[in-house]
């Protein structure tokens, strides 16, 4: 069954369900994209997941883009796919302040978001409030900085960390 709608229709339905989200479709985007407010992102994802007829239940990916705009923004993106029509995926975009990036976690909506948000925290330093387990995932605990931020010099070296004594200095445990 094909989903007969475009991103503007979908944005209107999101706006009707979560009025605070300021959802609007990005007309110029090459793939269906909707911008929403960062605090309403969990509600929007949950609405898209549960709404009969839409059922965006397949979590595809979450990532971020560091925009070097004057106001300093980090865009956080969530991509979900409808199980009614697997050809339909939607990019949900939100912007957070680059100086102290933080937004509520969406880890409760889809299970895969847990690791995806850990990676965004690791690479971009976005703090996800309420995340169950916000540790670095690809870099090691002693690493300083967030390497995919544009302000992080790509040739920067980090000091060698001494060999870890697992009893005196164990790896950070899961909460």
């Amino acid at each position: 069954m094909a989903l007969e709608l475009d991103s503007a229709d979908l944005a209107a339905r999101v706006l009707a369900a979560v009025p605070a989200s300021d959802a609007r479709a990005v007309e110029s985007a090459l793939v269906p994209t909707i911008e929403v407010g960062s605090t309403e992102m969990p509600d929007v994802l949950a609405f898209l997941r549960d709404e009969p007829g839409l059922e965006f239940k397949l979590f595809v990916d979450a990532t971020a883009v560091d925009r070097e705009t004057p106001q300093g923004l980090v865009e956080v993106l969530y991509i979900v796919r409808s199980i009614v029509d697997f050809g339909w995926s939607i990019v949900l975009k939100t912007a957070v302040d680059a100086a102290e990036p933080s937004m509520p976690t969406c880890a409760g909506v889809h299970k895969g978001i847990n690791w995806a948000e850990r990676e965004i925290y690791d690479m971009f330093g976005v703090n996800f409030d309420g995340h169950p387990d916000l540790r670095r995932i690809l870099m090691y605990p002693e690493f300083v900085g967030h390497p995919l931020r544009k302000s992080y010099p790509y040739q920067k070296r980090q000091p060698l960390t001494p060999e870890r004594d697992p009893l005196a200095n164990p790896w950070p445990k899961r909460n």
């Binding site: 239940k57 397949l58 979590f59 595809v60 990916d61 199980i83 889809h110 299970k111 895969g112 995806a116």
Partner: peptide, 10 residues
């Protein structure tokens, strides 16, 4: 099935 979709398995 539900867990697989929620985890983003493909």
């Amino acid at each position: 099935k539900e867990e697989a979709l929620s985890y983003g398995l493909t």
